[in-house]
Simulated scan of single mutants.
Amino acid sequence: MDLLLLSNSAMPGLAYLEYALAPLKAQLGGRRRVLFIPFAGVTQSHDAYTDKVTLALTELDLEITGIHTVTDPLAAIADAEVIMVGGGNTFNLLKTAREQGLLEPIRQAVKKGALYVGWSAGANLACPTIRTTNDMPIVDPGGLDALNLVPLQINPHFTNALPVGHQGETREQRIRELLVLDPELQVIGLPEGNWISVQNGRAHLAGSNPTLLFKAGEAAITLAADHCF
């Protein structure tokens, strides 16, 4: 399977998705037909979200179609060379995808060779569950199980920084709570500006910021920028 799982969509000083252009170009190959899934976007229309992504990726010369505009979404998934899932609210993304019966067709399309590209909520959707999202559960998605395209859980936007005077838990403490209850899990703390590329059964970590691997009962492991697993 081919996957590109990005922590986020924008970096300080860069345009929307600009930092993702290089890894996208490297992994696209000759694929150009993109089916974009905008369902994580709650405060913007699906049309506006699709247009925003299309504009951001202009230089890649892609044919981007929003799944909300097609008459037969399942056929569109099967025909897509790239399935791209944007960030936003993971719970709304999963709820809508489940209600429309898209999860299994997406899974099968990726297994058959479509490139899956997701950032933030889109990266969470590729995991076994969405239990490591940072999002507020604004809707009930009817279960937390997701696409299970990768065996690890990803926490996008990972940071342990807290505002001065803030007394809440750090991100690591929240992840540790999950690992107490489900010690078999492994969680990747993927900071902004980093991504995971999966090709030919191997996952390759990239980006300039320290990425952490969390396991139950063990200290966090810092993964090298070129770590493969």
Rank of each mutant, 00 (worst) to 15 (best):
L125P: 06
V53L: 15
L115M: 11
E99T: 12
P38E: 11
K111N: 11
L103I: 13
A80Q: 00
V82K: 01
P128C: 11
T54W: 07
Y49P: 00
T96F: 01
I64V: 14
P105N: 07
T69H: 09
A78H: 02
T43A: 08
I67K: 01
Y49C: 06
W119R: 01
T50Y: 03
Q44K: 09
E99A: 15
S120H: 04
L55N: 07
A56P: 10
A80R: 00
H68T: 11
D51F: 01
G66M: 12
G87S: 10
K52L: 14
K112N: 13
A97M: 15
E59W: 06
F36R: 00
G88E: 02
T71E: 15
E104N: 11
L74N: 04
L60E: 02
D72P: 05
T65Q: 12
T71S: 14
T71I: 03
A76S: 13
M84Q: 04
A109I: 03
T69G: 00
Y49M: 12
G86Y: 04
H68W: 15
R98N: 02
A80W: 00
M84S: 08
V110Q: 00
A76I: 04
A76C: 03
E104S: 05
H68E: 13
R107I: 05
T71M: 10
V70D: 11
A40Y: 03
I106H: 00
H46K: 04
N124A: 10
I83C: 08
G122H: 04
G101A: 04
G87A: 04
Q100N: 14
V117P: 07
T54R: 11
T50Q: 11
A109M: 08
E104R: 09
D51P: 00
R98S: 07
I37M: 14
L125R: 02
G88V: 00
A40G: 05
T69P: 00
T129W: 09
C127H: 04
D51T: 13
V42C: 09
S45T: 15
T90P: 03
W119Q: 04
V117L: 12
T71C: 07
R107H: 11
K111A: 15
D47P: 00
D61E: 14
A75K: 12
G118R: 07
K52I: 00
S120M: 08
T129M: 11
G41C: 07
K52S: 15
L93W: 06
P128I: 12
G88D: 06
A114R: 00
D51A: 14
L102W: 14
R107S: 09
T50L: 03
L55I: 05
K52W: 12
L60V: 11
V53W: 14
G113E: 09
L125M: 14
T43W: 06
L102N: 01
D47C: 00
V110T: 01
G101T: 01
G86H: 02
H68C: 03
G66E: 07
P128V: 10
I64F: 12
G101L: 07
I67D: 13
G41A: 15
L115I: 09
A56I: 09
F39Y: 15
L115W: 06
Q108R: 11
G66N: 09
